[in-house]
Amino acid sequence: MAVLSYLEAIRETLRQEMRRDPRIIIYGEDVGVRGGVFRVTEGLQKEFGEERVIDSPLAEAAIVGTAIGAAINGLRPIPEIQFADFIFPAMNQIIQEAARIRYRSNGAFHVPLVIRAPFGGGVHGALYHSQSVEAFFAHVPGLKVVIPSTPYDAKGLLAAAIEDEDPVLYFEHKAAYRSVKGEVPEERYLIPIGKADVKKPGRDVSIITYGLMVNYSLRAAEELEKEGISCEVLDLRSMRPLDVEAILETAKKTGKVLIVHEDNLTGGIGGEVSALIAEHALFYLDAPIVRLAGPDVPAMPYSPPLEHAFMISPEKIRDKARELAQF
């Protein structure tokens, strides 16, 4: 099996899917000639041509709006938003149109659309190139939101998102692009959307997280293992729909839950996960649910020390998990 970076896994999956399904088109800023600012789509225009890998104007509402139209009319568009920070001009299209057309048309139309967008900080991207935006979309019925943590999951989730008959937001962590590597099978496989994954079993504390933070949590868990503290790491993989069953199972198993995300605390995914546990697993809890999240400040700072302070690190996760284990 080939060892690919997170980024390569996404690129190779796009390539494999486009070879499989001629309806797939890629559409976005600099995705064609330049191969994307992160090189995710590098070489795809060369292989599939300008008709299928299209450089768009710098107009996110238009990118998503036209993609919705194309999807309704039978194509499988995978528009890319260059940075998740730039997705806000397209919010109206995504929420008012893409998410609702199936409902509004009583099932007559649907939007098989995958919106890819790199997100997250810790890469010195400052205010407009570092945001986590998943919580905005996880709030909206009619959308699905997935964030892979490993190259393996990146492939399986992307293929499943493309296979899905309704709009899926597929967020990719920039800091994971080249730092996270792993084995990825050649053949096509799907990871069902809405299924979480126990990345590491444990007995003392459950760390519920997603994306890059899964990797950080695993590192923290590894260190704590040396201290005799056993952490279970649950990778949500899908922010909407959440895998309620898996969340409750791990919460009941350990009775101590630490939820970790880089997105800021208030109104984040952690609040929803926490509420589910409080509603359905209260009598298994042995400690208050703990959330470790980005601070509620307006944006990722540019100053490296401040950026470091904002970011969740393996050390911060380790310390919180240890505190919870000792509670």
């Binding site: 260190e223 009598f283 809890l285 400690a287 393996p314 240890r322 505190e323 509670f327």
Partner: peptide, 28 residues
């Protein structure tokens, strides 16, 4: 930024110092 040095295990949170006599839902 250098990763924070591995600190000595943090003492238990002060807010739980009164742990005796208060039981979690699981314990109850």
């Amino acid at each position: 930024p250098a990763p924070a040095p591995s600190e000595a295990p943090a003492p238990a949170a002060g807010s739980v110092a009164e742990g005796r006599g208060r039981y979690s839902p699981a314990v109850r």
